[in-house]
Design a protein around this nucleic acid. Structure first.
Lengths: 178, 178
DNA sequence: CGACACATGTAACACGTTACATGATTTG
DNA sequence: CAAATCATGTAACGTGTTACATGTGTCG
């Protein structure tokens, strides 16, 4: 839903055409989650199908401008008024991976943990460096980076706590579960 | 990919039939991310299509047992050997929401922040309570809960940092962006 | 002229998700 | 017997994603 509603929000600010939406979305989210230009057009088509946006003529340059419908504005208002619930979020691949890694044979859980931690800490360094390099007035990007940083930190902490918890498990001490 | 690979991992432990996979997956992930039973069968069909699992006769009770193929074991090994990358993860709906909320008219960013924080803190309490109630030997569930808790804490921290950052923005002080 | 940015779109697929159909078996 | 649990599946849809086709305009 992120892409759909994100585009909706940008169109609320100002009616735009596809290419422009792509540029704007990239600016606003700091290019953290790259968005294929093709997806703009597929998403716009679906939004129009659902009556949330409508073609609003062209801007004199032949661009296919889209604008929100009333229904689209409603949807957007509802989005902003409703918190993102934990249940709404996609399954956490890492959590599932570790949960099952504990119980399958032939998997070295220590190895999995360590590989992940290395990657996570590298990400954390990278993100911190990026944050130093961002223009300090680029609010949107700063917030996006902060979000990723806090998440990576939480992940590192969680990996540590997993390690600790597992120290009590004999299979783990042997390097291989079961 | 979480469901696909999760089921693959469970089948590596032991060939099983669909219903059994459902039960086991629920146990292992602590029912945190409920999995519709139907999805087991659609996923199994796709795994078979891709040559990662194969029917392995029945267990004498007429159950449709599935087992990993060599290719499936490869896939699984690769999964465990490769860290989950930040780029692999789905877009963060909350981050996108706040990033765009800053720039659209008629949205009270304070309100959005506050609504989210309330929800996040409630989640945090809930998760903490759940954690107290879990059997202390239920490792998988404990880990899953911890993961959610760390994430919720990170989210709360991030929301605070957003608030702070925005204190510098005049539009924010007026309650409405733009 | 050739490369590159601008601009629009489509066909096809992956994965997740669920509502529904269907029937066997168990148990209060 | 009725309700619940066990068990298997399918049709259909939503969102995300990308490779590809296609064309215009601009600039070195």
């Amino acid at each position: 839903m992120s892409v759909k509603l994100g585009l909706l929000a940008l169109l609320d600010e100002q009616p735009m055409y596809g290419y422009q939406l792509h540029t704007t979305f990239k600016e606003r989210t700091g290019d953290t989650w790259p968005l294929n230009i093709g997806q703009i057009y597929t998403t716009l088509a679906r939004l129009e199908r659902d009556g949330l946006v409508e073609p609003a003529g062209d801007d004199g340059d032949g661009h296919a401008i889209y604008a929100l419908t009333d229904s689209g504005r409603d949807e957007l208002r509802r989005w902003f008024a409703t918190p993102v619930a934990r249940a709404d979020r996609p399954r956490d691949e890492l959590a599932i991976k570790l949960a099952v890694a504990l119980t399958v044979s032939g998997v070295d859980v220590r190895e999995v943990l360590q590989t992940q931690r290395t990657a996570t800490l590298r990400d954390l360094q990278d993100l911190t460096r990026q944050k130093r390099e961002v223009a300090p007035d680029d609010l949107a990007w700063l917030l996006a980076l902060d979000s990723l940083i806090f998440q990576a930190e939480a992940e590192a902490r969680w990996l540590d706590s997993c390690e600790e918890r597992l120290l009590g498990s004999p299979a783990y001490r042997n390097g291989v579960a079961r």
